[in-house]
Simulated assay, not measured.
Amino acid sequence: MYDPDKRKILSAVSHGAIFLSATFVSVGLPIAILFVSEDPVVRENAKESINFHFNVWVYGAIVTGLTWITFGVLLPLAGLWFIAHWGLTIWAIFHVLTDPDKPFRYPFIFRVF
């Protein structure tokens, strides 16, 4: 049996790591949790967080490129993407804290892991 409090904390930290920075440093936390934890739910949440990081970077690069190409006309799109990625992360943290026995799955993302 796995410790539910430890499961909640590690899963929430995995998803919440994206709040630490928008750089590649923030993905290190879920990667470390993936390698250290033996809990299958925590490992699934860490994998999902890593996949979400990749999606944030890819979509962020696309939105940034489109904003530059259109000379800022699509700047509101960048704001919407920022709100969406923070909102999805908050939803993930809420989910893993309220239902710690089920890994969270982000909608509409591609999964590498």
Results as ranks from 00 to 15, higher is better:
Met1Leu: 05
Met1Arg: 01
Met1Trp: 14
Met1Gly: 10
Tyr2Asn: 06
Tyr2Leu: 12
Lys6Thr: 15
Arg7Leu: 04
Ile9Asn: 00
Ile9Asp: 14
Ile9Met: 09
Leu10Phe: 02
Leu10His: 00
Leu10Ser: 02
Ser11Gly: 06
Ala12Val: 13
Ala12Pro: 11
Val13Ile: 14
Val13Gly: 03
Ser14Lys: 01
Gly16Ser: 04
Ile18Met: 03
Phe19Lys: 00
Leu20Pro: 04
Leu20Ser: 10
Ser21Met: 08
Ser21Gly: 05
Thr23Glu: 12
Phe24Ile: 13
Phe24Pro: 05
Val25Ile: 12
Val25His: 08
Gly28Thr: 08
Pro30Ala: 05
Leu34Cys: 03
Val36Lys: 15
Ser37Arg: 10
Glu38Asn: 12
Glu38Arg: 15
Pro40Asp: 15
Val41Cys: 02
Ala46Lys: 00
Ala46Met: 04
Glu48Leu: 00
Ile50Cys: 01
Asn51Pro: 08
Asn51Ser: 05
Phe52Lys: 12
His53Tyr: 15
Phe54Gly: 05
Val56Gly: 09
Val56Asp: 00
Trp57Asn: 09
Val58Tyr: 01
Gly60Tyr: 09
Ile62Cys: 04
Val63Ile: 03
Leu66His: 08
Thr67Lys: 01
Thr70Arg: 02
Thr70Pro: 04
Thr70Gly: 08
Phe71Val: 14
Phe71Met: 11
Gly72Ala: 06
Val73Met: 01
Leu74Trp: 03
Leu74Ile: 10
Leu75Thr: 14
Leu75Asp: 10
Leu75Trp: 10
Pro76Cys: 07
Pro76Phe: 07
Ala78Cys: 08
Ala78Trp: 03
Leu80Asn: 06
Phe82His: 13
Phe82Cys: 04
Phe82Tyr: 12
Ile83Met: 13
Ala84Pro: 00
Ala84Cys: 02
Trp86Val: 15
Gly87Thr: 07
Gly87Ser: 08
Gly87Lys: 02
Leu88Glu: 07
Leu88Gln: 13
Leu88Pro: 12
Thr89Ser: 08
Ile90Met: 03
Ile90Val: 08
Trp91Thr: 14
Ile93Glu: 02
Ile93Tyr: 03
Ile93Pro: 01
Ile93Leu: 03
Phe94Ser: 08
Val96Ala: 02
Leu97Arg: 15
Leu97Ile: 06
Asp99Gln: 13
Asp99His: 07
Pro100Trp: 02
Asp101Tyr: 09
Pro103Gln: 01
Pro103His: 03
Phe104Asp: 11
Phe104Cys: 04
Arg105Leu: 01
Tyr106Glu: 07
Tyr106Trp: 14
Pro107Gly: 06
Phe108Cys: 07
Phe110Arg: 06
Arg111Glu: 04
Val112Ile: 09
Val112Asn: 07
Phe113Pro: 02
Phe113Leu: 09
